[in-house]
Design a binder for these strands. Structure first.
Lengths: 224, 224
DNA sequence: GTTGCGACTAAACCTAAGTATGGTCCTCCC
DNA sequence: GGGAGGACCATACTTAGGTTTAGTCGCAAC
C-alpha cells in the first residue's frame, strides 16, 4: 500500500482533501499512478486487490476509485456491481489492457466515470479523476443534506408526518383537519411542532424539504 | 425509406405510438431492423444517411434513433454531437461492426442508451429500444411541463417575477415590501396576480413551480 | 390626445395562520 | 401506580394573507 501527497507546501492532510484509491495487482502500475497523482497534490491509497480495499475503512472525504477490469479474483465489473449493491457509490474509473465494447457499455451504464485503455495519457487519467472527485463531492453533499432531513423527519410523530404531507401538498389547515378527522386547532399545533422539529424557517422552506424527501409521491396516501 | 407497423389488429397509427428511427447506409440492415421492430408492433422509419433524417420533420412522439457509428459522410459520434448542439435530445442506440473502446466511452458519456456490436441478438436491440423509448417519454413529459411553466412565468411582469422570487424564497409580504421598497398592499396585489397567472392552487404549488423553473438560484438576485 | 397597461396605494373587510394557557384521555414503561 | 409522551380540544388573541373598490401616475402605442 502506497500513500502519497504533494510535498510542495508542507501542509498536513486535511479531512477535506480528496483521496484517490487505486486497485491493481501490478505493483508497478500502482506506483506509477501514485506518483502521478502525488505530482498534482492528490492523496492516494493503493491496493493489490479488491479485498484489501474493502478491509480499509471507508474514507469520509470525496474520493474515487481506479480499477483494472481484470482483477485477481473478482472482475472489475462484478466488483462495481458489488459496491453498488452494498450502497457504496464511489465514482469508478476503469483501466484495461484488453477490454471489449460490451464490458465498456456495462461499466458506463453502471455509472463509471471513464474507461481508459492502456496505455493512456496521464492527462486523460487526471481529467477523469477531476471529474470523478467533483461528482463524488456533489453526491456527498446531497447525501448529507438528505440524511439530515431524514433524521429530522424521523423525529416527527406519525400524526405530524401525516400533517406535514397534507400541508406541503397545499391543503389549508381546515382541509387537513377534515381529512384526518380532527379539529383545526389541533392541526395548527401539529404544524407549529413540525416547523420547529424540521427547523423550517417558512412554509416554502418546508415544501422544499418535502420535495427532497419525496413526500406525497410514493409514501403515505396520495392527495387529490 | 421503409415504414412498418404491426399488422395484427388493423389499428391506425396513433399520435402517441412511439417511432424508431434507423439510419444506416446498408439497405439490408435497414430492412432487417424494420422487420424486427415491425414484428413487435413498433412504427419504424429508416434512412440511408444522417442528411435524410434531418430533412424529415421531427416527430412529435416518443422516439429513438438507431445509428451506425460509421456513417457515409458524418461519423455517428459527430452526428450525435450535432444533434445535442442543435437541442435535439432523442435517445441514441449505436451499432458498430468495428468500433473501439474510446468511441464507446465517448458515445456513452454523451448520453447514448446503448452501444451494440454487430452481430447482436435481436432481443438486445429490442431491450435497448424499450429503454430508449421510455427515456424519451420521460424527457418529453418533463420538457412539456417545463415549457408550460416557462410560458406562464414569461407572462408575468418584471415586478411580478421579482415578487414571486422573494415570496417563494419564504419572505413574508411585509419583508418583500421592504426589500423592493413598496407598500405591503402592493405586494399582496402582485401576489394574487401571480397566483392567477401561474395557475397555482396554493403557495406550496407555487414553490414547486419556482423549484422547477430554478428560481432563486441563478437568476435575478440572491436573497439572504 | 386618449387608450391601455404596469406599478403603485388607501380603506375596509374577511379568512387563514399561529401562539399561548389550560386541560382531558390513553398507552406504554418502570 | 405514577410518570412521560402523544393526541386531542377549547378559549382568547395577534399577526399574516388576500379581495374588492377606487383612484393616481407615467409611459408607449395608435
Amino acid at each position: 500500500m502506497v500513500t502519497g501527497r504533494a510535498a510542495s507546501p508542507p501542509t498536513q492532510a486535511s479531512a477535506e482533501d480528496p483521496i484517490v484509491f487505486v486497485i491493481d495487482d501490478d505493483a508497478s502500475v500502482r506506483d506509477a499512478l501514485s506518483n502521478l497523482f502525488r505530482s498534482v497534490g492528490l492523496r492516494t491509497v493503493a491496493f493489490g486487490s479488491a479485498h484489501e480495499f474493502l478491509q480499509h475503512k471507508p474514507a469520509d472525504v470525496p474520493s474515487c476509485l481506479i480499477l483494472d477490469i481484470r482483477l485477481p479474483r473478482l472482475s472489475g465489473l462484478d466488483f462495481q456491481a458489488e459496491l453498488t449493491k452494498a450502497g457504496i457509490h464511489v465514482p469508478i474509473i476503469f483501466m484495461t489492457g484488453h477490454g471489449d465494447i460490451p464490458m465498456t457499455v456495462r461499466a458506463m451504464k453502471a455509472g463509471a466515470v471513464d474507461f481508459l485503455t492502456k496505455p493512456f495519457r496521464d492527462q486523460d487519467m487526471l481529467d477523469a479523476v477531476t471529474t470523478a472527485i467533483e461528482r463524488d463531492r456533489n453526491r456527498r453533499d446531497k447525501a448529507k443534506v438528505l440524511a439530515n432531513l431524514r433524521a429530522a423527519f424521523a423525529s416527527l410523530t406519525p400524526r405530524e408526518r401525516q400533517v406535514m404531507t397534507l400541508v406541503t401538498a397545499g391543503l389549508m389547515n381546515k382541509q387537513v383537519a377534515a381529512e384526518i378527522g380532527v379539529a383545526e386547532i389541533t392541526v395548527k399545533i401539529h404544524r407549529g411542532q413540525i416547523m420547529r422539529k424540521m427547523a423550517a424557517k417558512s412554509l416554502p422552506d418546508l415544501v422544499r424539504m418535502a420535495e427532497i424527501l419525496g413526500i406525497g409521491r410514493a409514501s403515505g396516501r396520495a392527495q387529490t
